[in-house]
Design a protein around this nucleic acid. Structure first.
Lengths: 333, 333
DNA sequence: TTATTTAATGTGTTCGAACACATTAATGCG
DNA sequence: CGCATTAATGTGTTCGAACACATTAAATAA
């Protein structure tokens, strides 16, 4: 169309230089006229590179919250395998910081194109990031942020806002002057953000009608846990609404059952089987869905589409904060 | 690997016959051993066909509900244009059945590979489906079902369940023995399904504690509408909770404002600007998000990926029924 | 002016699959 | 056995982009 060979067009497209002003202008004009867009399929076929995405996440066997995340990775992996995208997973023990470091080291020495990780330990995650920088491996975070990692790509919920959503729901269903407790079970650093958001909402919207106090428990030993809960309730008789900041609301409900405590308001996180059961029974009023499946799936698929078809990458992909009741739960599974 | 030429492998892969038993077995064995998956990129490059997806939906200028759907189509269209997928839109007037038929005819005579449509008129949609069958154009429906179209591919919400979700929310926030009204504003056939689901929930769960009555209004003339609402409220003094079955909750709120009616519970649909405003103000308690953007985007992108990469098509893609409050609304826009 | 360097442009091959076409092997029939 | 017919197998080209390499035109030096 421009009266030059494909070689010259190629040099214009890729700015490889060595093109006369006249030729450049002829080609450029045509490119603009026909609004040329390269065929990503042909492009990819020629480049024909295998892309390696390595994923670092907690072992789903150690914490069932991560089961859907794992499935999301598998799904995306299968989908993009035929396109030459290789996904490899590294599981670490969510209760063991060294296991996190060990697995990260494994991942980094295999020199992937990108490391996708769920960073639940603050300090250790910093180290991993440093190593990745040194080895020129780009990093994408999912599930939760790490404080000073703001410059990284992140896929997940705004945890502060997530706490606010919980608070807004709580505010709609609690009685006047009811007292509320924020329950952290086996607290991880990022759970504090949810507490902050929750408190923030009540400070703004509700004019301190409701006392909000926070409390940490450890669920490792069931008997001990039940005793702790029982004591806490005894010394806080007027509390009858609970916000559990992770997927362990069912643990609290089970303690309630053993202690014969009924008719409390409970808002928790995540669609684990036992949570779903108590949601259906009415023992849990609302669950907030953190979409671990979608987070992981999106992490892999966004990267794959970026590598394969040059799709742009977002810097922050804040997923919707889904509110789940017994009636709409089925569609989120 | 099997000691035969690519021609023979090709015949085995595509079952074109003319392959000796011996050769077939050799090739088949290797294919299984290496778990051969065709490279969808190369495949598509060779086939090099332009796929035409035509979309028939109500004019977003006539009903703002359809604005995000239109945007979803544009987004998917831009994304798949470089792959040789051509999307063409036909807008019809949602208040004019002939315009629907006219536009459908236009769409069909251009012989697209598939017609994606939002079928808000029952009988007319049947006719369109018939025409498509005759012309061997496959059809995908989105936004709402048409009764006897169950065999078609559908992308959207389960409207009956959607009514149940609204009811479950209502049930969580109304006072004991409060009465409820289901409000249809400019009723379309599929809105009845939401009413059915809503009533069903209260029949099952709430043991007829709450009277639920349904009422239709027409909002074409504002003065008339306000008067109708006023009269309805006067003759039903104990009703103070409202379920509006489409995106027009804001119309009801505006009537309330003029009639100086306050502190009613309202649950409605869709994140239109005025609805969002009243949600933030607290005049609307919950909105249910029908995801018109995602419906339309998914419709186009599923089809495109099916044509391009042989991805399977679901028969029913029921989207999640998202519950929206002032605190999580921002992520759904 | 001619040789030589450098700038500019053109040509050929490749990626993996699809398909048309060419070739070779096997079978049937007189 | 020879030849036709069909079955079986192999070869070559194409899709659009990327890139190595070949070629030609222009600029510079001897």
């Amino acid at each position: 169309m421009a009266g030059v060979s494909k070689g010259t067009v190629d040099r214009v497209l890729h700015k490889r230089g060595k093109v006369s002003k006249k030729a450049f202008e002829k080609v450029d004009k045509v490119l603009k006229e026909i609004d040329y867009k390269p065929n990503p399929i042909a492009r990819n076929l020629k480049i024909n590179k295998t892309y390696n995405i390595h994923v670092l996440l907690p072992d789903p066997l150690k914490d069932p919250y991560w089961i859907p995340a794992n499935e999301g990775i598998i799904e995306a992996s299968n989908q993009f395998m035929p396109f030459g995208v290789m996904v490899r997973k590294y599981f670490y023990d969510p209760n063991d910081r060294t296991s996190f470091l060990d697995e990260s080291r494994q991942a980094i020495i295999s020199q992937p194109d990108v490391l996708l990780m769920a960073p639940i330990f603050d300090n250790e995650s910093h180290e991993v990031l440093k190593h990745c920088c040194e080895n020129k491996i780009s990093v994408v975070l999912f599930n939760n942020h790490i404080n000073s990692f703001k410059e990284q790509i992140f896929i997940g919920q705004d945890l502060n806002q997530s706490g606010r959503v919980a608070a807004s729901l709580m505010n709609k269903i609690i009685g006047k002057n009811d007292e509320i407790s924020i329950i952290h079970i086996n607290k991880e650093p990022h759970m504090q953000q949810k507490e902050n958001g929750f408190k923030e909402f009540f400070k703004e919207k509700s004019g301190n009608n409701h006392l909000v106090i926070s409390k940490e428990f450890n669920s490792a030993e069931k008997r001990r846990f039940n005793k702790d809960v029982s004591e806490f309730l005894k010394s806080n008789k007027s509390i009858n609404a609970f916000f559990v900041t992770n997927s362990k609301a069912y643990v609290l409900i089970e303690a309630f059952k053993e202690l014969e405590i009924r008719e409390r308001i409970v808002i928790g996180y995540d669609l684990l089987k036992p949570n779903m059961k108590y949601l259906k029974e009415g023992a849990i009023n609302f669950l907030i869905h953190q979409k671990p499946h979608r987070q992981a799936y999106l992490g892999v698929s966004c990267l794959a589409e970026h590598f394969l078809f040059g799709k742009g990458l977002p810097t922050q992909e804040f997923l919707p904060i889904d509110i789940v009741t017994s009636e709409n739960a089925q569609y989120y599974l």
